[in-house]
Design a protein around this nucleic acid. Structure first.
Lengths: 218, 218
DNA sequence: CCACATCCTGACCAATCGGTCAAGAAATAT
DNA sequence: ATATTTCTTGACCGATTGGTCAGGATGTGG
């Protein structure tokens, strides 16, 4: 039960709310126009604030962009929790696909900003790639290798399996416009998203040799 | 077929060569900086021509960009030839994966420009998406459905299988920088590219239920 | 040779960009 | 109340951008 209080805003609330407005607008504009094509004026208009106000909260365009990318990176990493909690490849990889597809559906702009950042050789988050992402990847590769060693799946190169999972799930966000066009200019329906998830899980889980009795129903 | 020209005109050679230089440079700069971040001056420097010369051959930045994107689209479609010539899913899909992976390796800049164009809602090639790409996709979906109907593979949604093929293969170009970083800042070796191809083909072909005796050796 | 078409390019321009600033408004602290 | 901190914003600035243009250079056809 939140009471709408349009007038009496406390200073801390003002800062919090304005930074949120700016970050949401920035994510959208950066996704649609790229870093170079985005302008502070566009972001300001979308956030409903004067341009000078943006520079009060974020000193430069690059600082704002950096914050957007870092926020996305956090969401991105968080999706891995389901991976570790799993008892085996069917559950772990299946849940990971579900989680990443949900991100692609709910956070398409963020995914595009991430893709754009990496495509342009990661000028802003290269250090994160070299540290956090390397560690994350090594950990998951070990887990997958363990599943292989204990006969839970075929001896697949874990690295390329991970790339395949990233590619397939993020494609639905990054190439969402192409997919919509091929869907008759319509957003994917709930059923179509479900079909996408199921098709991906079915092909990959069967493809890596997960035992039949571990597979979910499709 | 081109008519062989015994005495090619000099002027025409100049035009041909300069347009080629500009297009090659433009593809690289657009890929690395995005449309908004690319500048005519950067492209001119990379092509080794004065900026004003670019505007002699291509009236505007948009016109140059449009030509780059259209060229990529042609290469992109051409990779489908192997698909149609195949006698079944193992051969057709396997060859298509090989062809698209080869494009990712040899044409990474083009792939990035394409990805960027689609991510930004295809401002330049939307009409191609709605006509050529729709037709292409429908044709391949029919072929896959025929393979399903004749029991050559499992009843997989052909649309999502195609998306999976695109996503997985193009990922090695579009996210090449991330892959290099995770590979210790090294380009993938011949053997690593081969491993990537094999892993993708193995997972997908097994995942869609291609008969064992149709599978190649991995 | 000459007349013509094509190619080349330094200098320039209007528009737009990211970013600054100073003065004032509004909330908070004393 | 008053002093202080935080927030707001129109106006402005230097730098960069895509694009123009006039005039010279170079190749072509007669």
């Amino acid at each position: 039960m939140q009471q709408p209080q349009p007038q009496p805003l406390r200073k801390k609330e003002i800062r919090q709310e304005n930074e949120r407005l700016i970050l949401v607008a920035a994510e959208k504009v950066f996704a649609e126009a790229g870093f170079g094509g985005a302008t502070m004026q566009l972001i300001a208009d979308l956030a409903g604030l004067p341009k000078a106000n943006l520079h009060y909260y974020f000193p430069t365009k690059e600082a704002l962009y950096r914050q957007v990318v870092q926020n996305i990176f956090q969401i991105w990493l968080q999706a891995a929790d389901v991976f570790d909690a799993a008892s085996g490849p069917a559950e772990g990889i299946g849940a990971y696909i579900d989680a990443k597809m949900e991100i692609s559906r709910r956070h398409p702009a963020g995914s595009k900003v991430w893709a754009s950042e990496v495509m342009h050789r990661a000028p802003v988050i290269q250090d994160y790639l070299e540290t956090t992402l390397v560690d994350w990847t090594n950990g998951r590769m070990k887990l997958i290798q363990h599943w292989i060693d204990t006969g839970r799946m075929d001896p697949i190169d874990p690295r390329h399996l991970l790339y395949m999972l990233w590619a397939t799930t993020q494609h639905y966000a990054d190439f969402g416009h192409q997919i919509e066009t091929l869907n008759g200019a319509q957003d994917l329906s709930d059923a179509q998203w479900q079909a996408a998830k199921n098709t991906i899980k079915r092909i990959i889980l069967k493809g890596i040799g997960v035992a039949e009795d571990e597979l979910p129903e499709f």
